Amino acid sequence: MAALELRHRQRARAEDRIRAARATGLRTLPLQEAMPNQIWLEIIQIAFDLLAWMPLFPLTGQARFWEPRRLRLRLFSTVAQLIATGRRRYLRLAQALAVDRGNHEALDRLHALPNPG
């Protein structure tokens, strides 16, 4: 019975991701030819892999259950400025973001990851 319950939960999670993909980028293909549309679908897939990964590590609390639209509005449309000084790069966030502690905690967790390069 537990295996059946797990299977149904995984299926529901996959269907939720498909529903979210259709709502944001897969309703209609934007281009006329097959190859550019294939590239478009790959970009959408990478974006939704990122959205599927976000709740697993950097997000905590209620933010882990946000739909992709809310994630886009609250996290991905954050006003920031990329500053390069010397050999380092810094991301300076807008002052309005200082109120939202969840964003800072998520960015701190991402910053703590080992640097692949």
Rank of each mutant, 00 (worst) to 15 (best):
M1N: 10
M1T: 10
M1P: 04
A2I: 10
A3R: 14
L4I: 14
L4V: 14
E5C: 06
L6T: 10
R7T: 14
R7M: 15
H8M: 12
H8I: 11
R9G: 02
R9H: 08
Q10R: 14
R11H: 12
R11A: 12
R11C: 09
A12G: 00
A12T: 02
R13L: 08
D16P: 01
R17P: 00
R19V: 00
R19M: 07
A21F: 13
R22D: 09
A23H: 13
R27E: 09
R27H: 11
T28V: 13
T28Y: 15
L29E: 06
L31E: 07
Q32K: 13
E33K: 08
E33F: 12
E33W: 14
A34S: 08
A34K: 10
M35I: 14
M35A: 15
P36N: 08
P36R: 04
Q38K: 09
I39V: 09
I39L: 10
I39H: 10
I39E: 05
W40L: 08
L41S: 00
L41T: 03
L41R: 03
L41I: 02
L41C: 03
L41Q: 05
L41V: 04
E42L: 15
E42N: 12
I43E: 12
I43M: 15
Q45D: 15
Q45C: 15
A47V: 08
A47R: 06
A47F: 10
F48A: 03
L50T: 09
L50W: 12
A52T: 10
M54Q: 03
M54E: 05
M54L: 11
F57Y: 13
F57V: 11
F57I: 10
L59C: 03
L59R: 01
G61C: 01
Q62N: 08
Q62H: 04
Q62T: 02
Q62V: 07
A63P: 03
R64N: 04
F65M: 05
F65E: 07
E67N: 09
R69C: 10
R69D: 11
R69K: 13
L71T: 07
L71S: 04
L71F: 00
L73V: 11
L73P: 05
L73D: 15
R74G: 06
S77F: 09
T78F: 06
T78L: 03
T78C: 02
V79C: 07
V79L: 12
Q81T: 12
Q81N: 09
I83V: 04
I83N: 01
T85R: 13
T85A: 13
G86F: 01
G86H: 00
R89Q: 14
R89Y: 14
Y90A: 09
Y90E: 07
Y90W: 13
Y90P: 00
L91V: 03
L93I: 03
A94D: 14
A94Y: 13
Q95P: 06
A98M: 05
A98G: 06
A98E: 05
V99Y: 12
D100P: 05
R101I: 11
R101H: 12
R101V: 11
E105I: 09
A106E: 05
A106S: 06
L107M: 07
L107H: 05
D108Y: 13
R109F: 01
L110V: 03
H111D: 10
H111M: 09
H111Y: 10
A112T: 05
A112P: 02
L113E: 01
L113I: 04
N115E: 14
P116I: 00
P116V: 00
P116C: 00
P116D: 04
